[in-house]
Simulated scan of single mutants.
Amino acid sequence: MRDDAWLYPIVEIVHIVGIALLVGAAAMFDLRLLGFGRTLPVQALARHLLPWSWVGLLLIVPSGLLMFTTQPELLDNGVFLLKLALIAVAGVNAFVFHAGPWRVAGDWPQTPPARARLHAVLSLLLWIAVIACGRLLAYV
Protein backbone atom coordinates (compact mmCIF):
# COMPACT_ATOMS: atom_id res chain seq x y z
CA MET A 1 0.00 0.00 0.00
CA ARG A 2 2.94 2.33 0.55
CA ASP A 3 4.03 2.10 -3.09
CA ASP A 4 0.72 3.20 -4.58
CA ALA A 5 -0.19 6.89 -4.39
CA TRP A 6 -3.93 6.16 -4.37
CA LEU A 7 -4.37 2.92 -2.45
CA TYR A 8 -3.84 4.22 1.10
CA PRO A 9 -6.15 7.25 0.62
CA ILE A 10 -8.85 5.00 -0.88
CA VAL A 11 -8.60 2.58 2.05
CA GLU A 12 -8.74 5.53 4.45
CA ILE A 13 -11.88 6.84 2.72
CA VAL A 14 -13.49 3.40 3.04
CA HIS A 15 -12.55 3.45 6.74
CA ILE A 16 -14.14 6.87 7.23
CA VAL A 17 -17.32 5.83 5.40
CA GLY A 18 -17.49 2.78 7.66
CA ILE A 19 -17.07 4.98 10.73
CA ALA A 20 -19.86 7.25 9.51
CA LEU A 21 -22.19 4.27 9.05
CA LEU A 22 -21.37 2.50 12.29
CA VAL A 23 -21.12 5.49 14.58
CA GLY A 24 -23.92 7.34 12.82
CA ALA A 25 -26.32 4.44 13.27
CA ALA A 26 -25.24 3.91 16.88
CA ALA A 27 -25.57 7.63 17.65
CA MET A 28 -29.07 7.85 16.16
CA PHE A 29 -30.17 4.84 18.22
CA ASP A 30 -28.48 6.14 21.37
CA LEU A 31 -30.11 9.54 20.96
CA ARG A 32 -33.50 7.85 20.61
CA LEU A 33 -32.85 5.96 23.86
CA LEU A 34 -32.03 9.29 25.50
CA GLY A 35 -35.40 10.73 24.52
CA PHE A 36 -34.87 12.37 21.14
CA GLY A 37 -37.33 11.40 18.43
CA ARG A 38 -39.82 9.86 20.85
CA THR A 39 -42.34 9.38 18.06
CA LEU A 40 -40.04 6.75 16.50
CA PRO A 41 -40.65 3.27 17.90
CA VAL A 42 -37.39 2.05 19.43
CA GLN A 43 -37.57 -1.49 18.04
CA ALA A 44 -38.46 -0.34 14.52
CA LEU A 45 -35.59 2.14 14.58
CA ALA A 46 -33.22 -0.60 15.74
CA ARG A 47 -34.34 -2.90 12.90
CA HIS A 48 -33.57 -0.11 10.44
CA LEU A 49 -30.23 1.01 11.91
CA LEU A 50 -28.60 -2.26 12.96
CA PRO A 51 -27.92 -3.48 9.40
CA TRP A 52 -26.22 -0.15 8.63
CA SER A 53 -24.00 -0.50 11.66
CA TRP A 54 -22.97 -3.99 10.50
CA VAL A 55 -22.14 -2.63 7.04
CA GLY A 56 -20.04 0.04 8.72
CA LEU A 57 -18.23 -2.57 10.79
CA LEU A 58 -17.58 -4.67 7.68
CA LEU A 59 -15.91 -1.64 6.10
CA ILE A 60 -14.00 -0.52 9.20
CA VAL A 61 -12.31 -3.77 10.21
CA PRO A 62 -10.57 -4.73 6.96
CA SER A 63 -9.69 -1.14 6.07
CA GLY A 64 -8.32 -0.52 9.56
CA LEU A 65 -6.24 -3.68 9.38
CA LEU A 66 -4.91 -2.67 5.97
CA MET A 67 -3.92 0.76 7.23
CA PHE A 68 -2.27 -0.80 10.28
CA THR A 69 -0.12 -3.03 8.07
CA THR A 70 1.60 0.10 6.77
CA GLN A 71 2.34 1.38 10.29
CA PRO A 72 2.93 -1.50 12.72
CA GLU A 73 4.90 0.92 14.91
CA LEU A 74 1.50 2.15 16.08
CA LEU A 75 1.66 -0.66 18.64
CA ASP A 76 4.09 1.61 20.51
CA ASN A 77 1.68 4.56 20.37
CA GLY A 78 -0.39 5.10 23.53
CA VAL A 79 -3.17 6.88 21.64
CA PHE A 80 -3.52 3.94 19.24
CA LEU A 81 -3.63 1.48 22.13
CA LEU A 82 -6.20 3.66 23.88
CA LYS A 83 -8.27 3.68 20.68
CA LEU A 84 -8.21 -0.12 20.54
CA ALA A 85 -9.14 -0.35 24.23
CA LEU A 86 -12.03 2.07 23.74
CA ILE A 87 -13.30 0.06 20.77
CA ALA A 88 -13.21 -3.07 22.93
CA VAL A 89 -15.11 -1.32 25.73
CA ALA A 90 -17.67 0.00 23.22
CA GLY A 91 -18.13 -3.56 21.96
CA VAL A 92 -18.61 -4.88 25.49
CA ASN A 93 -21.08 -2.07 26.18
CA ALA A 94 -23.10 -3.02 23.08
CA PHE A 95 -23.00 -6.71 24.00
CA VAL A 96 -24.15 -6.06 27.59
CA PHE A 97 -26.92 -3.77 26.31
CA HIS A 98 -28.20 -6.41 23.88
CA ALA A 99 -27.90 -9.21 26.45
CA GLY A 100 -29.53 -7.10 29.16
CA PRO A 101 -32.00 -4.25 28.78
CA TRP A 102 -32.65 -4.81 25.06
CA ARG A 103 -34.03 -8.31 25.70
CA VAL A 104 -37.13 -6.77 27.28
CA ALA A 105 -37.39 -3.71 25.01
CA GLY A 106 -40.91 -4.73 24.00
CA ASP A 107 -42.00 -4.12 27.58
CA TRP A 108 -40.42 -0.67 27.88
CA PRO A 109 -42.62 2.34 28.52
CA GLN A 110 -42.31 5.36 26.21
CA THR A 111 -39.06 6.28 27.97
CA PRO A 112 -36.47 3.49 28.06
CA PRO A 113 -35.28 2.42 31.52
CA ALA A 114 -32.33 4.13 33.19
CA ARG A 115 -29.98 1.19 32.49
CA ALA A 116 -30.69 1.42 28.74
CA ARG A 117 -30.09 5.17 28.82
CA LEU A 118 -26.81 4.63 30.67
CA HIS A 119 -25.66 2.28 27.91
CA ALA A 120 -26.62 4.96 25.35
CA VAL A 121 -24.59 7.65 27.12
CA LEU A 122 -21.60 5.29 27.39
CA SER A 123 -21.91 4.39 23.72
CA LEU A 124 -21.93 8.01 22.61
CA LEU A 125 -18.98 8.94 24.82
CA LEU A 126 -16.97 5.87 23.81
CA TRP A 127 -17.45 6.36 20.07
CA ILE A 128 -16.61 10.06 20.32
CA ALA A 129 -13.43 9.11 22.19
CA VAL A 130 -12.56 6.48 19.55
CA ILE A 131 -12.95 9.05 16.78
CA ALA A 132 -10.89 11.58 18.73
CA CYS A 133 -8.10 9.05 19.23
CA GLY A 134 -8.17 8.20 15.54
CA ARG A 135 -7.76 11.84 14.59
CA LEU A 136 -5.05 12.41 17.21
CA LEU A 137 -2.95 9.66 15.62
CA ALA A 138 -2.03 12.10 12.86
CA TYR A 139 -0.56 14.49 15.43
CA VAL A 140 1.12 12.35 18.11
Rank of each mutant, 00 (worst) to 15 (best):
R103C: 12
N93D: 15
H98V: 10
Q110T: 13
I87C: 02
G91I: 10
A105V: 11
G106T: 08
P109T: 10
D76P: 01
N77M: 05
A99M: 13
D107K: 02
W108C: 03
L84A: 13
F95M: 11
G91T: 08
G100F: 07
A88Y: 07
V89S: 06
L74T: 04
Q110I: 11
F95D: 02
V79H: 03
V79S: 03
L75V: 14
L81W: 06
A105P: 07
F80R: 00
L86M: 11
V89R: 00
F80V: 12
A94R: 00
P109M: 01
K83S: 12
L75S: 10
G91S: 05
V104E: 12
L75K: 01
V104H: 11
L75C: 05
D107E: 11
W102I: 01
T111L: 01
W102Y: 14
L74P: 00
R103D: 12
R103S: 15
Q110G: 04
F80K: 02
N93F: 04
W102L: 14
F97P: 03
F97A: 09
D76F: 12
D107M: 04
V79A: 03
G106Y: 05
A94W: 03
L81Y: 10
F97V: 09
V96N: 08
V89C: 06
D76A: 15
D76G: 13
A88V: 15
L86Q: 09
L84W: 06
W108K: 01
V79N: 04
R103P: 12
P101Q: 10
G91V: 08
